[in-house]
């Protein structure tokens, strides 16, 4: 069983639909206790960082997530906000603390080419740096992105980055992997076969 966390941030239904297509048993839940019995946890989300963190705290999900993912090493997949939360803090609308599981900060996308629109919306080429795990068997896939902020990771910590997307002179971290923690900035559930393939790869990782 795989749990998708519902905490009032965006459309979890499409993530559910994608895993269902892959014939995976999956459950949408807001109940922290249910995270204890699952094989893996998926945290999707679109919207404001601070609203998301507040909702996770208020529902008691943050403490349980930390226990399951950090202490019990349960596989975690963060999508969009679920990637951004991993940072130490975000500069979106003030400063908000994140989970702090990965060093770095969430900053606004500001390409020096003013022709480039923000938010970064649409299908974009994704350069693979580590072609195993979630990205196995892929070469320069296009994924669907939808965000205005990105994860800036300090030079010394960059070994967690598994793929990037160059938007003008901004190098967007597209995906991260550190032990049992996986996260993607784009939306695999909306990226057709490339996205479904990535989710399938995640399911393969869980079974290992």
């Amino acid at each position: 069983m795989l749990a998708i966390i519902e905490y009032g941030m965006g459309n979890v239904r499409s993530v559910y639909n994608a895993f269902t297509l892959l014939e995976q048993d999956v459950q949408i839940t807001s109940d922290p206790k249910q995270l204890r019995d699952t094989d893996a946890i998926v945290l999707p989300g679109v919207g404001a960082f601070s609203d998301g963190m507040r909702n996770l705290r208020e529902k008691g999900l943050l403490n349980e997530l930390t226990e399951q993912v950090i202490d019990n090493k349960k596989p975690y997949l963060g999508i969009c906000l679920g990637l951004e939360f991993l940072a130490e803090k975000s500069y979106e609308g003030g400063i908000t603390d994140g989970f702090g599981w990965i060093k770095g900060t969430i900053n606004r996308i500001e390409p020096s080419d003013l022709q480039l629109k923000v938010p970064h919306i649409g299908w974009d080429d994704t350069k693979i740096l580590k072609s195993d795990g979630l990205l196995k068997e892929m070469t320069l896939p296009a994924f669907y992105y939808l965000h205005s902020y990105y994860f800036k990771i300090p030079e010394s910590q960059k070994n967690v980055i598994t793929s990037v997307c160059n938007y003008g002179d901004v190098e967007i971290v597209s995906s991260i992997q550190k032990d049992n923690i996986h996260a993607v900035q784009f939306h695999p559930e909306k990226s057709q076969e490339a996205g479904l393939k990535l989710l399938k790869n995640f399911l393969d990782e869980i079974k290992k």
């Binding site: 297509l21 892959l22 014939e23 299908w123 068997e137 892929m138 896939p141 296009a142 057709q192 076969e193 490339a194 479904l196 393939k197 399938k200």
Partner: peptide, 15 residues
């Protein structure tokens, strides 16, 4: 534009 790439998925195409 994005050209479709067909990755092998071990599930039926029409579930």
């Amino acid at each position: 534009v994005r050209m479709p790439v067909f990755y092998k998925l071990p599930t039926p195409r029409r579930p």
